[in-house]
Amino acid sequence: NQASVVANQLIPINTALTLVMMRSEVVTPVGIPADDIPRLVSMQVNRAVPLGTTLMPDMVKGYP
């Protein structure tokens, strides 16, 4: 099973992602692959992302 990117904390709308905000976890449904975490750094979320939420491609501005 492939690990996905999961919010490690509440991420407010328009926040630029940092490594501490994300963790990898095997979840269903599958979200953004954990391998993409380095690419996500400094990209902004377009909505508030609660703790434990799987990051989906449509939540991150400019992804992929």
Rank of each mutant, 00 (worst) to 15 (best):
P64Q: 15
L55V: 08
S42N: 07
L10I: 13
R39D: 05
S24I: 13
V45R: 00
A48N: 11
T28Q: 14
R23I: 12
S24E: 12
A34N: 05
V6S: 02
A7G: 03
A16L: 11
V27W: 02
I37H: 01
A48C: 12
T18K: 08
V49K: 00
V5T: 07
L17E: 02
V6T: 13
Q9R: 07
P38W: 09
Y63Q: 04
M59S: 06
L19S: 09
I11L: 10
P12S: 05
S24Y: 09
N46L: 14
N8A: 14
L19Y: 10
P29N: 06
D35M: 14
D58H: 11
A16C: 09
P29E: 07
V20P: 10
G31V: 01
V30R: 04
S42V: 03
V5E: 01
G31Q: 02
N46W: 07
V45P: 03
A16E: 07
N14M: 14
A34V: 08
A7D: 02
M43L: 13
S24W: 07
N1M: 15
D36C: 13
M56D: 04
L10H: 13
L55C: 02
S4Q: 02
N8L: 06
D58Q: 10
M21E: 03
G31T: 02
L10D: 13
M22P: 00
A16F: 13
S42K: 07
A48Y: 07
Q44P: 08
D58K: 06
P33I: 12
D35Q: 08
L17H: 01
S24Q: 14
A48I: 15
P50M: 12
S42W: 07
R23S: 08
D35A: 08
L10S: 11
Y63A: 04
A48H: 14
T53H: 14
A34L: 03
G62E: 14
L19G: 07
G31L: 02
L17M: 07
V27Y: 02
A48D: 14
V45N: 02
L19D: 13
V27C: 06
N1S: 15
A7P: 02
V60H: 01
R39M: 13
M21R: 00
V30T: 11
V5S: 03
P12F: 05
A3K: 07
P38R: 07
V26P: 07
I13H: 10
S4P: 01
L51H: 11
S4H: 01
N46E: 11
